[in-house]
Design a protein around this nucleic acid. Structure first.
Lengths: 260, 260
DNA sequence: GAGTGGTCTAGACCACCTA
DNA sequence: AGGTGGTCTAGACCACTCC
């Protein structure tokens, strides 16, 4: 054990010590999900510290995603959420005739009401990472951009932005809010000769940007999963890119794929 | 605009205002990655606040993963890291004769030296989520557990734990540190009749647990990606489960898969 | 009105790094 | 030695919730 660790174990700062004990109480089940933590003033009195020190302890747990503080009410042990899991099969033809989209299906499974909201539909210049993935050979790098938010009950869960080369999207009615095809956007694209043969999904996780935290109403301590999806047709051409930004405490991914 | 938003825009707390300005400076490129932020004392003097208030501003950015504070040195704009991307093709036979593992390949691409470290190899009882995914029909739910850490240069990047039903692992030499097969663990399993036909990967992101933050040496504001991998053989039997816990600022995933 | 978290002040001392 | 972040104190007032 080196000097640093030696000191840590002996002279652990009070805020961390309090945090450790609260964490221990949570992990041991003494404080169950949904339970209320002692108030900051009570913790301070109990441990003989200033309120700020007790507050710091609670904050450590908040930042770790274990606790959620509610202004004027108290701090509570966070309840694990059932995950809405997007699978790679969400683009499978098998869903077509079922009628329900995979997202709505997942919501239904959990007794939640899912819905989509269209934020904007515009002609735009794509961000570089999108332009680099789309086969946009034209000089005018222009795409149709559709922004959506997916809701589960009253929680915004995913922010979804789809980019389609303008040359492909033009004249298809994809500028309308209501997509003019029974099978949605991908039905339209298929009619234009782009049958989805493969998908390529690049996955990352990170803390939300300020605007994402606002839009997804994210409490502290919740990261986002950032998925950059590319649809590739039977000729190997990338004809559509979608970015999913999902709140990680309510969503996950699932890939069930062959080994090639 | 409701009352709350009205107040926010007018009476924004000083700590958030300072954080906003620093964030703005970072996003605009005024403060480039690696640049040093003003010291907390300087910020406080400049904005006419107490040091704690300036400190709170810096902390907001630290928790968002934008800034890293170094004790005794200063706070710095965090540099984006090149991601080590694990692909679904990492189990593909095509890597077999190349000799290098996908992780090491990715490290090499970035001029880094990758290495594996074996933490433990033991017979154990699997956690419930593992037991539920492995086809362990026996009454004695016992598995071989191998724990590894993957390093890139001097950074621990992934914590990897593999579970194999004891009935499959016994007598294979998988209890040794050096796996007795040219193609590694999966070579051994293949000799036992388990050819990997499909993989199933469940993906999540979350803030690290305390022990994970310690083991992966995670700075504040960095989430982990948690992947639960299941290998399925040609008969549809799940014969191996691996959990990857990866630091999200240095790693990502990539799936390039057919639409079935 | 009482209780809670959110923010702030104006100090203080400690631990660490650089020089 | 001087500058930096890390932690703490003992207050204060505000904003919000609940009764």
């Amino acid at each position: 054990m080196n000097d640093h660790e030696e000191r840590e174990s002996v002279r652990r700062p009070p805020s961390k010590r309090i945090a450790d004990e609260l964490r221990q109480a949570i992990e041991s089940g003494e404080l169950t999900p949904g339970a209320k933590l002692p108030s900051e003033r009570d913790l301070a009195a109990h441990y003989g510290t200033a309120r700020n020190t007790a507050r710091e302890a609670v904050r450590i747990l908040t930042d770790a995603g274990l606790v959620i503080a509610e202004h004027g009410r108290g701090a509570y042990v966070r309840k694990p959420q059932a995950l809405i899991r997007l699978g790679n099969d969400r683009y499978s033809p098998k869903y077509r005739d079922a009628g329900l989209s995979p997202f709505l299906l997942e919501c239904a499974k959990q007794g939640k009401t899912g819905r989509f909201e269209v934020l904007s539909i515009e002609r735009a210049t794509p961000p570089t990472e999108v332009a680099g993935r789309l086969d946009v050979s034209e000089k005018t790098k222009s795409v149709l951009r559709r922004e959506n938010v997916f809701w589960a009950d009253d929680d915004p869960v995913q922010r979804v932005t789809t980019y389609i080369p303008w040359a492909i999207a033009t004249g298809t009615g994809l500028l309308q809010e209501e997509v003019p095809h029974q099978y949605g956007i991908h039905g339209v694209l298929e009619d234009r000769g782009h049958v989805m043969a493969r998908i390529r999904e690049e996955i990352n996780a990170r803390m939300p940007r300020a605007d994402e935290a606002r839009h997804l109403r994210l409490p502290p301590g919740v990261p986002v999963i950032d998925v950059l999806h590319t649809s590739v047709d039977q000729k190997g051409k990338a004809y559509e890119v979608t970015r999913f930004v999902m709140r990680a405490d309510m969503s996950g991914l699932l890939y069930d794929v062959p080994v090639e």
